[in-house]
Simulated assay, not measured.
Amino acid sequence: MADRNSRAIYRWSPEGSLIDTIGGPGSGPGEFEHGPISLAIYDDSLLAAIDMQTGKLLLYYLKPNPAFDRTITFPSALASVDWLSHDKLIVSAVPMPSSNGINIVHIKNEEEKNKLFRITRSQASTIWITISKHKCK
């Protein structure tokens, strides 16, 4: 469950007991500046979360214990995220108008970007991402 007020994500058991807390307020690795607004879980083991208004997509491992993997920062706020497979995500960005009316995503530091992920397709404000090797396992 994403909680914008506490800027954290809470995992609950089927019985209603709190399992753990992911993230928290702050601007450091794995922390939320404005709070999570969209979550996507893949196979009960990978979590993608959007930090409201920051353009940040935070990735975590959930098994065996929650562990922060990386942040991917976009030049525009993000609206939603979903996993397509263990290494592919689809992200909806808030439109970034350009002079020709096409929304384009530019990522700074191409070398670092290519190590962590690559944009495999982009159309309007929807972005398909392939994630390179995860940092933690």
Rank of each mutant, 00 (worst) to 15 (best):
K63C: 10
V81Y: 00
T120F: 03
L62P: 00
P75M: 09
P75V: 08
Y61S: 14
I127N: 05
I119Q: 11
I127T: 10
A40I: 07
E111Y: 02
P97Q: 07
P29V: 07
S45A: 13
V105P: 08
A79E: 11
F117A: 11
S125G: 07
G24C: 09
G30Q: 09
S132I: 02
A40Y: 06
N100S: 09
E111S: 13
S98Q: 14
Y42Q: 05
A93I: 11
D69M: 05
L89T: 02
I72K: 11
P95L: 07
I90T: 15
A67V: 15
G30W: 10
S132K: 12
S45C: 14
F32R: 04
A40C: 06
H86C: 03
T126F: 14
K113I: 04
L39A: 02
F68S: 00
N109L: 00
L58M: 02
Q53K: 15
V91Y: 01
E112H: 08
L84P: 00
A77K: 08
A124Y: 13
S45K: 15
A49K: 00
T130G: 07
A40V: 07
R118I: 10
Y42K: 04
E31K: 15
E111G: 03
L58D: 01
I131D: 02
Y42P: 02
S99I: 10
N65M: 01
L57S: 04
I131E: 05
S80L: 01
G24E: 08
A40G: 08
I50K: 06
V105S: 13
V94M: 10
S132H: 11
G24V: 11
K108C: 03
P29R: 11
G23K: 05
S85L: 03
F74R: 07
K133N: 15
L39Y: 08
P97M: 03
M52E: 14
N109I: 00
S125I: 00
T73M: 10
K88L: 06
G24A: 09
P36A: 09
Q53Y: 15
H106D: 11
I50P: 01
S45D: 10
